[in-house]
């Protein structure tokens, strides 16, 4: 299994879901129906997709027993979590 294939699937699913939700929300707005939850769901999908791609890469590396690649993905996830924590604390 190539590492790129599952990552490609995750990225594409993220693009398709967010695109569909944004398009549905806009279509509803044009028809005079306000449905803000669609925009929020689309935004949340966008926010989650890059992290989901890194988690997928981690899972594929582990399945392939490529522990060095897994170490890279895990280190990045930890740094991202710490960065988010520090940024949230700073901006309070």
């Amino acid at each position: 299994m190539r590492i790129g294939n599952p990552v490609y699937v995750v990225l594409t699913v993220g693009v398709v879901i967010s695109y569909t939700l944004f398009a549905l929300g806009l279509a509803a707005h044009i028809l005079g129906i306000e449905f803000p939850v669609l925009f929020t769901a689309a935004a949340l999908t966008l926010l989650a997709t890059p992290t989901a791609a890194v988690i997928t890469a981690l899972a594929v590396f582990l399945l392939k027993r490529e522990y060095r690649g897994a170490l890279l993905a895990l280190t990045l996830l930890i740094i991202m979590a710490l960065g988010l924590l520090i940024s949230s604390m700073l901006r309070r």
């Binding site: 806009l26 925009f39 689309a42 935004a43 997709t49 988010l84």
Partner: peptide, 19 residues
């Protein structure tokens, strides 16, 4: 995604404009 999450949590992202 890290910085956008912080902006989103603080309510600064205009999701209607983002659409």
């Amino acid at each position: 995604s890290a910085s956008a999450t912080v902006y989103f949590m603080r309510g600064l992202v205009n999701t209607f404009l983002a659409a």
